[in-house]
């Protein structure tokens, strides 16, 4: 705050980034495999930089406090909340957004209908595991991060990976169904999951009410 601090002493304290008159510093971010040079405020979170500077709008602000998961991205392969990540501290990190999954190597381009989609994306698509889909990128990336370290996760591990992800529209059962498919877990029957026919549906034989 005082003028004394504006210009740091030579060499002291390692590297330093000094904001310009506009309060910004240059930062090179490696996003989806490509370096991007951006000028960010030193207090700016990565989410805002991705959306506003890089126009990567698949990450979204739902809460701004790390509770909803809509802003999730992969940082060095791990799912993190970009709303809690200072952009200036991301130099050197491998950042990946939902946009980076598409055709971006890995499982992309495996063919089939959803060519260019990852296995997880395809499962979400096939199960229609979304309503408004504001939360969807976050759920998909959370599962991608899990599958990258554990290709055969348990159902409990999948559920744990989805903690910190809210779907206000309520697509949880289909999200889980998609996740089970992508993770190779057996699917589960529903409690009277509205088979729609004429009249009140009966209980399908394989869907025992009660557990």
């Amino acid at each position: 705050m005082t003028a004394l601090h504006e210009v740091p002493a030579e060499g002291g304290g390692g590297d330093v980034k000094v904001p310009d008159a506009d309060g910004r510093v240059p930062v090179v971010l490696l996003v989806n495999g490509a370096p991007h040079r951006v000028h960010v405020r030193t207090t700016e979170v990565l989410l805002d930089v991705l959306r506003e500077d890089l126009k990567l709008v698949g990450a979204r602000n739902g809460c701004g406090v790390g509770m909803c998961g809509a802003c999730t991205i992969l940082r060095d392969g791990r799912a993190v909340s970009s709303c809690l990540t200072l952009a200036v501290l991301c130099e050197g990190a491998d950042l990946r957004t939902i946009e980076g999954l598409r055709g971006g190597g890995g499982e992309g381009g495996e063919g089939g209908e959803g060519g260019g989609l990852s296995r997880v994306q395809r499962a979400f698509l096939e199960h229609r595991a979304f309503q408004c889909s504001y939360c969807t990128s976050g759920f998909i990336l959370a599962l991608e991060a899990l599958l990258a370290v554990d290709s055969h996760p348990t159902e409990a591990a999948v559920r744990e990976a989805f903690s910190g992800h809210l779907c206000r529209c309520g697509s949880y059962s289909r999200i889980m169904a998609a996740a089970r498919q992508a993770a190779g877990l057996p699917s589960r029957g529903g409690l009277a999951r509205g088979a729609v026919t004429g009249g009140v549906t009966g209980c399908a034989p394989d869907e025992e009410p009660g557990r």
């Binding site: 990567l56 709008v57 698949g58 990450a59 957004t97 939902i98 946009e99 999954l101 598409r102 959803g114 989609l117 994306q121 395809r122 979400f124 698509l125 229609r128 979304f130 408004c132 889909s133 504001y134 969807t136 990128s137 998909i140």
Partner: peptide, 9 residues
């Protein structure tokens, strides 16, 4: 639907 899983909605 594809937009919804690719962040493009």
């Amino acid at each position: 639907a594809e937009d919804r899983v690719t962040g493009r909605t």
